[in-house]
Amino acid sequence: MRKINKTTILSTAYKNWEEALVAHPEYDSSKNKYYYDVVMNLFHCQQGLCAYTEQLLCTPDFYEANNWVNGKYQKPVNWSVKGQLEHFDATKKQKQGWLWDNFFMADTDVNTKIKRNNSVHEILKFDRPDYDEFQLLEYNSNEHIFIANTELDESDQEKINEMLFILGVNHEPVRTVRAEYLEMKLRSILLELDTWEDVKINQFPTAFEFCKREIMNY
């Protein structure tokens, strides 16, 4: 849910093909030759996290730039990642099934059990140029729940809260995993076992940043 910059294109072979498409072929993940190029370029942009819940799905060794040769991803023998390729707007899947702009990598359970083909509001499309999580969201650090910024007008709050629900951001087990992960990280800092600068956060960075801002009172 932090802003995702999808302008770094490592899978240039795919991107050239996608841009040249007049009509998209039918989406079939198992048949398309660019499937892994899309998946891994997304992980590169999302730094291995689920675009929606920010759970860790893929470790850096698989998505670092040295895995690409001549614009194609070189899948290692021990390749192992979690998650699914997700069409943000499911209505575009049929006619624009390979549209880069509509892709994210997401946690499998969130994709298949919660989001499915539910309609979406662009307000929480995390790669929008004007998207700013700190303007749109609030974080309740006691219960580790994301909500819409209550300073926004009610209509926007409603859309954001609906999206947070559709994207599974506060569903279980995500909320509990996030709570446990962050509580331990925060405790280690407050007990001076770690520092804000050195603490290693490899998932839930947005929630962590909200907690940090709250604790630092800014």
């Binding site: 359970d109 059990k113 609030e138 309740n140 219960e143 729940i145 994301f146 909500i147 819409a148 209550t150 709050q157 809260n161 947070l164 629900f165 506060n170 569903h171 279980e172 087990p173 909320r175 509990t176």
Partner: peptide, 28 residues
């Protein structure tokens, strides 16, 4: 239930919305 029996939720889905409503009320 969640850790040993692998139940992937802590309650009915409506609970998620109720908790978000509570967090919103608390913020207001």
């Amino acid at each position: 239930l969640q850790r040993v029996f692998d139940l992937d939720s802590e309650g009915n889905e409506k609970r998620v919305k109720a908790l978000m409503k509570l967090a919103t009320l608390e913020s207001k």
